[in-house]
């Protein structure tokens, strides 16, 4: 039987991650620093036990998951919040790359985009997105959406268990 190299590495990484029962790791991918800041801030105040990493473009997101370059030693996220319109590598490409890689395929990806286009929504689900959330246009709704995202994914939902 063929065992992918990645999965072996993942098991090792999983061990260290789950050994110390720490906060949920969230990776925010967005090229808009304002959205990154605000989302980060709202998540921190959400009351969930979490730790947030942020990256500003698609290429960085891919590097982060592979933990290459400056991302060596970074934890594999439990949840990825991904914008679609990213510089270098579009969010769609990042998504399909994640979902095509057995090491990352299980990690839930929430698409968080301002696009309401049905083509963007459907294509995201086709590529394996776990949820599509539209970025609201005002602070009140934005805060509610990010809070409920944190409540649901980190509170109600059972996330994939890191293999030991």
């Amino acid at each position: 039987m063929h065992l992918p190299v990645h999965s072996a590495r993942r098991e090792g990484g999983g061990l260290t991650n789950t050994a110390i029962k720490t906060a949920s790791e969230i990776l925010l991918v967005d090229d808009n620093p304002a959205d990154l800041d605000l989302t980060h801030e709202i998540l921190n105040k959400s009351g969930q036990h979490l730790s947030v990493n942020t990256v500003g473009d698609g290429a960085q997101a891919i590097a982060f998951l592979h933990r290459t370059g400056s991302y060596a030693g970074k934890p594999l996220p439990d949840l990825i919040v991904l914008d679609l319109n990213l510089l270098r590598a579009h969010g769609r490409d990042v998504l399909s790359e994640f979902k095509a890689n057995p090491e990352f395929a299980r990690i839930p990806v929430v698409i968080f985009s301002s696009s309401q286009a049905s083509s963007d929504i459907n294509r995201s689900y086709d590529l394996g997105a776990n949820c599509y959330v539209r970025k609201p246009g005002n602070l009140f709704d934005f805060r509610n959406v990010v809070r409920s995202m944190a409540d649901f994914w980190l509170g109600s939902a059972s996330l994939p268990q890191k293999e030991t």
Partner: peptide, 17 residues
């Protein structure tokens, strides 16, 4: 136009708050 406008709206609201 919606995207930059969203930033203006949210951050002026944050400023107000």
């Amino acid at each position: 136009l919606q995207e930059p406008l969203r930033m203006v709206a949210i951050y002026t609201q944050l400023l107000a708050e």
